[in-house]
Design a protein around this nucleic acid. Sequence first.
DNA 1: GCTGATTTTCACCGTTTTGTCATAATGTTA
DNA 2: TAACATTATGACAAAACGGTGAAAATCAGC
Lengths: 224, 224
Amino acid sequence: MAKILIADDEDKIREVVREYAEFEGFEVVEAKDGMEAVEKAQSNTFDAIVLDIMMPRLDGFSACKKIKEVSDAPVIMLSARGEEYDKLFGFELGIDDYVVKPFSPKELMARIRVALKRGQKSQNRSDIFRYEGLVINVTAREVVIDGVKAQMTPKEYDLLFYLVRNINIALSREKLLEEVWGYDFYGDDRTVDTHIKMLRNSLGKYRNLIVTLRGMGYKFEKGN
Amino acid sequence: MAKILIADDEDKIREVVREYAEFEGFEVVEAKDGMEAVEKAQSNTFDAIVLDIMMPRLDGFSACKKIKEVSDAPVIMLSARGEEYDKLFGFELGIDDYVVKPFSPKELMARIRVALKRGQKSQNRSDIFRYEGLVINVTAREVVIDGVKAQMTPKEYDLLFYLVRNINIALSREKLLEEVWGYDFYGDDRTVDTHIKMLRNSLGKYRNLIVTLRGMGYKFEKGN
DNA sequence: GCTGATTTTCACCGTTTTGTCATAATGTTA
DNA sequence: TAACATTATGACAAAACGGTGAAAATCAGC
């Protein structure tokens, strides 16, 4: 589960955030001021960081800047609707989002969840592909079709996973041979066709997610 | 500059957003309800889309879902702090951000700017050519005309992509034959003409983006 | 080394694509 | 405007292409 850092000098706020966050299933670490936040963030194990702006020892902006040097976790700022309010919109510090005080804990949680999701999207290049009843889990090397685990040959998996990892990208037969079969494969282009055929059969009603690009190759395409 | 779509049934809101957005240098298109928003979004030329939730004919959630089918522009929702407020947090619709009414236009602009920035990072813009309702995606080997995927022959794609990659550059028939057909093609110059003809037909109302340079060759020209 | 599973090659075949050419249309120049 | 040069277009036969099934080759476990 996700681990988040909450930095605020008001005990009450930390307490409320912790309560809600743990209810959401997050692991929570607290910091009482900017310095402490920076120190704890050094470990770089957080999935998201919530910083109050007005804090003793080191303010939220400065803390954010320091933290961004070592971590790429999303940072959400807590701001009072006051003088620093405008500063937020510079977003030069790499702030990912902000919540205005007084805030609803529910909203903060929502924003944390969104920030986490966003991070995953850009990083984990969609390790799991879902489309209707089709689930392709690349790391688990597993394909589930309408609730039934699909039984495929190794090459089919390799080919499918490569296609999915390069979703919406046109791939020539040469490229596929090189990437899936290996650079040392000296065989017929048409081998790819045969495996595409088998893969399509294995995919059943989802066969048309693999699109033929005539004169070019193939492409895995997110269905419409 | 970025082009944004603002959909809200209240004239006053659209007016204010337009004013601020144009001040920011954005090109603004308005929609009075969800239906209109979806229709206008079909052109797929927007860099960001702002949707009110409560709208006649089609609500913001449904509109968002429809729009996400054809466009990958970030969607920012406008919500009243009320009953639909919680729904936002599902974020299953692919909502990128939201702003709670009554909002400060400044904040909305900031969020739009952030959404745009985020979008640029994840996509490789250079490979995608957009002009009005025409989207040419070279890596996906896909051409979308007013929301409809175009069906072209391999040579048409190759020729089009080469022209687009050399936008605003005059290309002789010899050059085109060498680059698109290959150096080992020993055929008639006029072959190019025929393929330009077919390509123009495939491009429909965008046919005149391909300009004939009499006595010289052809050129793909970004319309003004 | 036997056996069954997997991978690769290959040729057939219906379709699509392509290059050429004759003719029409359009632009250019005197 | 006439004469010429260049480009657009439609038609069509040849070539290219991809889906497929089957056979051959290879591999893996025993």
